[in-house]
Design a protein around this nucleic acid. Structure first.
Lengths: 131, 131
DNA sequence: ATTAAATTGTTATAATATAACATTTTGTAA
DNA sequence: TTACAAAATGTTATATTATAACAATTTAAT
């Protein structure tokens, strides 16, 4: 596995340390003190980090999270749980699920090589708050 | 089920007739002749149509498609196949899959009430073109 | 008729993302 | 060790997607 470039490393470190998904412009704001001044610098690093599987994009939130599974692998099978109250996002690492979806074949005869799944609901904490 | 308002109906008809997912600003362009002039008018109709389950948002594409299943139900369990070559999007209606995902429970103890799944790959046509 | 909820109209602006072009750095093979 | 290609960077401008805020109108149920 290749090493990260300077900008990629700066941005990966930030995302990796964050307890919550980060948005591109919030990343931009955070790394301006480190010399990254333009949106495109952020987006290019994000694209690369996604491509090599170090981070994932949470599509429904336009935000990025560090990979929690095997941090160097290209990610073709991603699943997340998202709390609609506190917005906590967790990567799901469940071999039964990934096996089921990787092997899934629909009647349309399409050959899948990738999937992304997002579950929505209330996390434990938020469920108990509401009761 | 309630009737659609004027703007909602105009925009739903457009999406429903389209063979491919439509983006908000392309919708705006198409309906300007019918008196809808501002982005917000489009987004408000889209929000409502999504809420009542007449259309779905394809999150990875920021585009909207008419529901192919039971067009009046609130959609809490959506799955799509997306061809990465021709961008054709099809709603997957597979009871085994929806049953599996609706019942899925992860070890985090979170209570899911909704999911969205997007499969990516090559459709039949595009697979044969490449060979 | 009254009234609350939903919808519409409108202007402005926020948030997300890419185009285009020039330069520099990095890895690798002659 | 130089030369070369690929990757990464820097920069300005702009495209695309989405919402805020406020006023007016329509709809549907009393």
């Amino acid at each position: 596995m290749q090493n990260l470039s300077k900008n990629q490393q700066i941005i990966f470190d930030l995302i990796d340390k964050s307890p919550e998904p980060l948005k591109a412009y919030s990343i931009l704001f955070s790394v301006q003190k480190r010399g990254i001044k333009a949106p495109l610098q952020v987006y290019r690093a994000l694209d690369k980090l996604v491509e090599i599987g170090k981070i994932h994009k949470i599509e429904s939130r336009n935000a990025f999270i560090a990979c929690q599974n095997s941090s160097c692998q290209i990610s073709k099978a991603t699943a997340f749980s998202i709390c609609e109250s506190c917005e906590k996002v967790t990567e799901i690492n469940n071999s039964n699920l990934s096996k089921y979806l990787t092997c899934f074949k629909d009647k349309n005869g399409m050959k899948y090589n990738k999937y992304n799944l997002e579950f929505f609901g209330l996390c434990k904490k938020c469920v108990s708050k509401k009761s």
